[in-house]
């Protein structure tokens, strides 16, 4: 059976629904608790509605940008897998793509090539679903985050930012180097996407258009992809 048929079967959509159900129950419970306390503290109903409305309006732009990038996951794997991993399963789209690549490499396959088969897909399902448990375990330690923050960061928020940047550069740097070494259209894709991403983020700051940052990644991603295809012919 072709792995793409497996990747979009009804059971995948059902698995995504289970994860979504847990996440929706959790966020609704927490929101109702917060709203109840706000009302008990004297905040009127229409003010609570204003808070909810403000939150939805704020989220609209980033969510649209998320959907734009999510099409990449839909095309790379399947709509069902995109629903499973992006509905409520911890990871961002770029994280899922890199983890799928890591999973395929583990079984000696290259994700996104004709040689990727159902065994590679099985590795992707196992690795992407199990590795994200690390974040869930970290969430279980929420009670201890403040003292841990003091211990690791030493109270230096900028050092925490440096760690995040270096870790991301390190992880994406490996796969960036791999594709640069392939040369030709793959290197073109990398370089164009890198340039577009850096350029759009810089433009957002220069022209004071922070909303542009939400779309920068998606635009750079598609720009790099099209550039690679144009070079390849």
């Amino acid at each position: 059976m072709d792995w793409r048929q497996i990747a979009n079967a009804p059971w995948i959509w059902l698995c995504g629904l289970i994860l979504v159900a847990v996440a929706l129950y959790q966020c609704t419970y927490f929101a109702l608790r917060a709203i109840r306390l706000l009302k008990a503290s004297g905040v009127p109903d229409d003010a609570v509605k204003k808070i909810i409305r403000a939150s939805v309006i704020t989220g609209f732009g980033p969510v649209m940008a998320l959907i734009f990038v999510m099409f990449a996951l839909v095309a790379a794997i399947s709509p069902g897998f995109a629903w499973l991993r992006e509905g409520a399963a911890v990871g961002a789209v770029t994280t899922e793509l890199i983890q799928a690549t890591n999973a395929a490499a583990g079984v000696g396959q290259t994700f996104g090539t004709p040689g990727f088969n159902e065994i590679g897909f099985a590795a992707v399902v196992w690795v992407t679903n199990i590795v994200c448990i690390g974040w869930l375990i970290a969430a279980l330690f929420s009670r201890h985050l403040q003292p841990l923050r003091e211990k690791i960061g030493g109270g230096d928020a900028r050092w925490l930012a440096v760690i995040t940047i270096c870790a991301t550069l390190g992880a994406f740097g490996y796969w960036t180097t791999t594709h640069l070494l392939r040369r030709g259209p793959f290197a073109v894709s990398v370089i164009v996407a890198m340039g577009l991403s850096a350029g759009l983020y810089s433009a957002a700051d220069y022209f004071k258009r922070p909303g542009l940052k939400e779309w920068a990644l998606g635009l750079a991603l598609f720009g790099g992809m099209i550039a690679g295809k144009l070079y390849a012919g």
Binding site: A72, A75, A76, T94, L97, I98, T101, F111, G112, T113, I165, T168, L169, F172, G173, W175, T176, H179, R182, P185, F186, A187, S189, V190, I191, V192, A193, M194, G195, L196, S197, A198, Y201, A216, L217, A220, L221, F222, G223, G224, M225, I226, A227, G228, K229, A232
Partner: peptide, 18 residues
């Protein structure tokens, strides 16, 4: 284009951002 060049573009885009 999606199948062959999406991944290199993803890595390049995120790397460029950071």
């Amino acid at each position: 284009a999606f199948r062959r060049f999406l991944l290199p573009a993803v890595f390049g885009a995120v790397f460029g951002q950071f």
